[in-house]
Design a protein around this nucleic acid. Structure first.
Length: 492
RNA sequence: GGGCCGUUAGCUCAGUUGGCAGAGCACCUGACUUUUAAUCAGGGUGUCGCAGGUUCGAGCCCUGCACGGCUCACCA
């Protein structure tokens, strides 16, 4: 590193050695903290509201030093813990000689514990008048700048701990993320769903069509795939007799990285026996709107330039109608790949000649429809070609009972009335296999089909992208802002 | 993988037509008994992302590479 950083680190190492020479352990094992900074402030307020009667109790607090203002005989330090921050006041007449000496070797970034009485300064700032303090951890490196914080995105993601120290609002995003997941779990548990954990390392990566990550088990001398969906194992559990199951789990897709895609992301999947996609739709509305209300107190959130209103019921639109509205294509009139491609070319759309009818429809959705679905919207009834795990509509062999939920121009949910006919399922897999691109997992999961042969009740299933939901709730335009450690290329 | 943009002190950023490498914060020394982006005086600590090239001379121009951002492609 540069000589200047060496110099700062060197100075701090020298301080460390001085402390050790005086018999001070710069990294002690524990500290008895009586209050968090916010509890201490609350205690002071309580004391004041009681008319100042009684002795102010001595509190022990601990945290990282964020700022220092030295003024001759007195010093002010700001320290921060997980709850917030508080100001410390040091007066050289009030602390021991040893403490005074220690204070000289303390730096911004160090973690200390301090005890003393609470009071308010002239300007009303709640403050701890320090009587005694201890070094709890010596910091050897300078923190990012106090006013502008840390804004270099590369450093923010690679050294997320610095981001969290320097930019307090980043921590808030991840608190909301936790609240979203907690809210969803509570919702599902209350509805009688059983939370389960299924395997991450799978012999076949099924349940979606995406390129998987591959790994190898040494003892078994066998390749495994990191799961690309939770679907097929959760449905096995429905066959097994758990009527309502869900999993909040990490899934892995070996695809491109973008502001809306991270190679590993978190998905909620749930399956409910004896339900269909209409039941699931209602559940999604209640789950998302209810969780939102719990966190924000209302149904409306700002997302970019828009205000999204999640109050049920959400807009429902058939996929067919949506593509008519936004792309001007009536796909019913173009029942095969060639005719649909011809129509798209006639409308001067860019068309990938490799794509079959299903993928062309998919393209119409993602290019023309999805970006326009700002308010929460359900698109219903998808073409069978792109929905191999969903049950056909009773009155239309070409469509399945499937919906996707959108908000803020992003897909957040995907659900269907699950296909439970094992013969139809095998045929759909075979059909899928023919269309599959190279590199994608293409082997039929025979064990899954076998499980269907034993009989799966009619079932409604759901997949919900947690990361994107958190993006919406926290008004973030990049998925990396809601994932603590997003995927980056290793620096060489 | 393609296109565009970026990379200068620990952090946030300037850097003119190609002519001695700059500021604020942080850091070090000193002053200061209620400060809070404390203030005041002094101190610049750098492989200008990396490697080449052009030039008397390159942070600046050219080529390649690395990493990042946006975007396109990919992506049930």
């Amino acid at each position: 590193m540069t000589s200047r950083l060496d110099r700062i680190a060197q100075q701090r190492l020298e301080k460390l050695e001085r402390l050790r020479a005086r018999g001070i352990n710069p990294y002690p094992h524990r500290y008895h903290r009586s209050h968090t900074t916010q509890q201490a402030i609350a205690l002071l307020k309580q004391q004041e509201e009681g008319g100042g009667k009684g002795e102010t109790p001595v509190v022990n607090i601990a945290g990282r030093i964020m700022a220092r203002r030295r003024m001759g005989k007195i010093s002010f330090l700001d320290i921060r813990d997980g709850s917030g921050k508080i100001q410390l006041y040091f007066h050289s007449d009030l602390v021991s000689e040893a403490n005074l000496k220690l204070l000289k070797d303390i730096d911004i970034g160090d973690i200390i514990g301090a005890s003393g009485k609470l009071f308010r300064t002239k300007s009303g700032e709640p403050t701890l008048e320090v009587e005694n303090f201890t070094l709890l951890s010596k910091s050897l490196r300078p923190l990012p700048e106090k006013w502008h914080g840390l804004s270099d995105i590369d450093t923010r993601y690679r050294q997320r701990y610095l981001d969290l120290i320097a930019n307090t609002e980043v921590g808030e995003i991840f608190k909301v993320r936790s609240q979203v997941i907690t809210g969803i779990r509570q919702f599902m548990d209350r509805r009688g769903f059983l939370e389960v954990e299924t395997q991450v390392l799978q012999p076949l990566a099924g349940g979606a069509l995406a390129r998987p990550f591959i790994t190898h088990h040494l003892a078994l001398d066998q390749d495994f795939y990191l799961r690309i969906a939770l679907e097929l194992h959760l449905k096995r559990l429905i066959v097994g007799g758990f009527d309502k199951v869900y999993e909040v789990g990490r899934i892995f897709r070996n695809e491109g990285i973008s502001t809306k895609h991270n190679p590993e992301f978190t998905m909620l999947e749930s399956y409910e026996a004896y339900a269909d996609y209409n039941d699931v739709m209602e559940m999604v509305e209640k789950m998302v709107s209810g969780t939102l209300r719990k966190i924000t107190g209302g149904y409306k959130i700002r997302f970019g330039d828009n205000v999204l209103n999640f109050k049920p019921p959400w807009q429902r639109l058939s996929l067919h109608q949506a593509i008519m509205n936004y792309a001007g294509v009536n796909f019913d009139k173009f029942p095969d790949t060639d005719s649909l491609r011809g129509e798209m070319l006639r409308l001067k759309m860019e068309v990938d000649p490799q794509k079959d009818r299903g993928r062309l429809i998919d393209e119409l959705i993602s290019t023309y429809v999805e970006p326009n679905l700002i308010q929460p919207t359900f698109l219903l009834d998808y073409p069978i070609e792109i929905s191999p795990l969903a049950k056909k509509k009773p009155d239309n062999e070409c469509l399945v009972e499937r919906f996707e939920g959108f908000a803020g121009g992003m897909e957040i949910a995907n659900a269907f009335t699950e296909l439970n006919d094992p013969i139809d399922q095998r045929q759909r897999f075979l059909q899928q296999q023919k269309q599959q691109a190279e590199g994608e997992a293409g082997v039929i999961d025979e064990d899954f089909v076998l499980s269907l042969e034993y009989g799966m009740p009619p079932t409604g299933g759901l997949g919900l992208g947690i990361d994107r939901l958190v993006m919406l709730v926290t008004n973030q335009q990049s998925i990396r802002e809601v994932i603590l450690f997003p995927q980056l290329r290793e620096k060489t």
